[in-house]
Simulated assay, not measured.
Amino acid sequence: MASRVLKWSSLLPSHDQGRIMNETYHVGSYWGPRKETPEACALRLGDFLTGMREVDPSFARWFQPGRSRKDALTRPIELEPAELEKRVRRGKDRVVEEIGFRVEGWNGVGDDHDASGFLVTCGSHAARVSNACVITLPSLGPNADRVLTAHVLAAVLRVSAVAWEPSWGVATSQAHRKLLDERGVRGAPRVGWVTYLEGRRGTVPPLPAPVRIEPVEDRGTLIILTPERFTVANPEHLALAEQVRELLAGAGLLRPASP
Rank of each mutant, 00 (worst) to 15 (best):
Thr74Pro: 07
His125Cys: 01
Ile77Phe: 12
Trp106Thr: 01
Val88Pro: 09
Pro142Thr: 01
Glu104Gln: 00
Phe118Leu: 05
His113Thr: 02
Val103Ile: 11
Glu98Ile: 06
Ala144Leu: 06
Phe101Cys: 11
Glu97Tyr: 15
Leu153Arg: 07
Arg75Pro: 01
Ile135His: 12
Ala150Trp: 04
Val109Met: 07
Ser139Gln: 14
Val147Arg: 03
Pro76Lys: 05
Arg158Leu: 09
Arg75Glu: 00
Val156Trp: 11
Lys92His: 14
Arg102His: 13
Gly117Trp: 05
Val129Pro: 03
Leu157Phe: 04
Ser139Cys: 09
Ala144Phe: 05
Gly110Pro: 08
Ser116Ile: 00
Arg102Glu: 15
Leu119Pro: 02
Thr149Val: 03
Ala127Gln: 09
Arg89Gln: 15
Trp106Ser: 07
Thr74Leu: 15
Leu148His: 07
Leu153Gly: 06
Asp114Glu: 07
Arg90Tyr: 01
Arg75Asn: 01
Val120Arg: 01
Thr74Cys: 09
Val120Phe: 11
Ser116Cys: 07
Arg94Ser: 14
Leu140Ser: 01
Ala132Asp: 13
Ala155Tyr: 06
Asn107His: 04
Glu83Gly: 02
Pro142Met: 00
Gly110Met: 02
Ala132Leu: 08
Pro142Asn: 02
Ser160Tyr: 06
Arg146Gly: 08
Glu83Phe: 06
Asp71Leu: 01
Asp112Tyr: 04
Phe118Tyr: 08
Ser130Asn: 04
Asp71Val: 00
Ser160Trp: 11
Thr149Ala: 02
Ser160Val: 12
Glu85Gln: 13
Ile135Ser: 11
Ile99Gly: 04
Ala154Glu: 08
Leu73Ala: 07
Leu79Phe: 11
Thr74Lys: 14
Pro138Glu: 05
Ala132Pro: 06
Gly117Pro: 10
Val129Gln: 08
Glu80Ile: 13
Leu73Gly: 05
Ala150Thr: 02
Val95Glu: 14
Leu73His: 04
Arg158Phe: 01
Leu73Phe: 09
Arg90Asn: 12
Ala72Arg: 02
Asp93Phe: 08
Val109Glu: 05
Glu80Thr: 11
Leu140Val: 11
Arg128Tyr: 11
Asp111Arg: 00
Asp145His: 05
Ala115Ile: 03
Leu148Ala: 07
Ser139Gly: 06
Leu137Asp: 15
Gly117His: 05
Arg90Gln: 13
Asn107Thr: 08
Gly105Thr: 03
Thr121Lys: 09
Ser130Lys: 06
Ser124Met: 03
Pro138Val: 02
Leu153Thr: 08
Val96Arg: 15
Asp93Gln: 09
Val120Leu: 12
Val96Lys: 13
Arg87Asp: 15
Asn143Ala: 07
Gly123Asn: 04
Ala154Gly: 10
Arg89Phe: 13
Asp114Gly: 02
Val152Trp: 10
Ala82Cys: 07
Pro81Gly: 09
Leu137Phe: 09
Pro142Gly: 00
Glu98Ala: 12
Thr74Glu: 15
Asp112Gly: 10
Leu84Pro: 07
Gly123Met: 01
Glu78Ser: 10
Cys133Tyr: 03
Val159Thr: 07
Asn131Pro: 01
Arg89Asn: 03
